[in-house]
């Protein structure tokens, strides 16, 4: 690992115009200046607002392809810039960028993937979310063969080595579980760390968030794509 690794922060965003600038400011204040925002076919000004910030590369999917597809685009972009470490976090502000430092430290200490986990610090997490997480973990373990404490978390870090090995096919929420499969398949060294999650009224009310219907769809897609 380089002494000064190139760290890229990937933020997938869909209709986040009201919060995206705040999220980007927080990431910059945490000390990260290489930020890539992927607007996944938003109908609002997310792309322009993100692009107006200094040191932010704003990319746009001209139609909505899903969170997984957006992250994959971000990772491909980071590869073009020869990134050594990539961190992904959600665009709705639920993740605290202050947790990035711990993730990078774990990558620098030899881990290939670091998974942020909400369940190791579930204080304040709604009960239905905790239950949904356990169900998601169960199906991920059953289908992909690796038990992790938060298979649906979008807050993750990857080494360059892992980025070159991980090969995903899915585009939507099943992407998060597919990463777990890739960790297992490629025998990647991974670590899980507790992360802070801020459940605001805004993030809880988002229409495109994982709900029961999307959960069923995700499990079916995981079964088919496997």
């Amino acid at each position: 690992m380089n002494k000064n690794p190139k760290i890229y922060i990937i933020i997938p965003a869909f209709n986040e115009e009201s919060v995206i600038v705040g999220v980007l400011k927080e990431v910059r204040n945490a000390g990260y200046n290489n930020i890539i925002v992927i607007d996944d076919g938003s109908h609002d000004a997310t792309y322009n607002k993100a692009g107006s910030m200094d040191n932010v590369i704003s990319l746009k999917h001209f139609i909505n392809r899903g969170k997984g597809a957006a992250i994959k685009t971000g990772i491909e972009a980071a590869k073009i810039f020869d990134a050594d470490i990539v961190v992904t976090l959600d665009g709705d502000g639920q993740h605290n960028p202050k947790d990035i430092a711990k993730m990078i430290e774990l990558i620098e200490n030899g881990n290939d993937v670091v998974l942020g986990t909400r369940l190791k610090n579930s204080k304040g997490m709604p009960k239905h979310k905790i239950l949904a997480n356990y169900i998601g973990n169960f199906f991920t373990w059953t289908i992909y063969g690796l038990w992790v404490t938060d298979s649906q978390s979008g807050f993750r870090a990857y080494s360059k080595y892992a980025l070159n090995l991980i090969d995903t096919k899915t585009d939507r929420y099943e992407y998060d579980s597919e990463i777990i499969r890739e960790i297992h398949r490629n025998n990647l060294k991974y670590a899980e760390i507790p992360i802070e999650v801020r459940y605001t009224e805004y993030s809880m009310n988002k229409k495109n968030k994982m709900n029961f219907k999307n959960g069923i769809k995700t499990v079916i897609k995981m079964l088919i794509s496997n």
């Binding site: 990319l59 001209f62 139609i63 685009t73 810039f81």
Partner: peptide, 28 residues
């Protein structure tokens, strides 16, 4: 049918991704 749909979905995502990344390639 599911296989065909999956293949089409994958192709659409690839096209959308290529178009999004063209901005970076152009700048470079």
């Amino acid at each position: 049918i599911i296989n065909i749909i999956e293949r089409i979905e994958k192709n659409i995502s690839e096209i959308v991704r290529k178009e999004a990344l063209s901005k970076i390639n152009q700048t470079k």
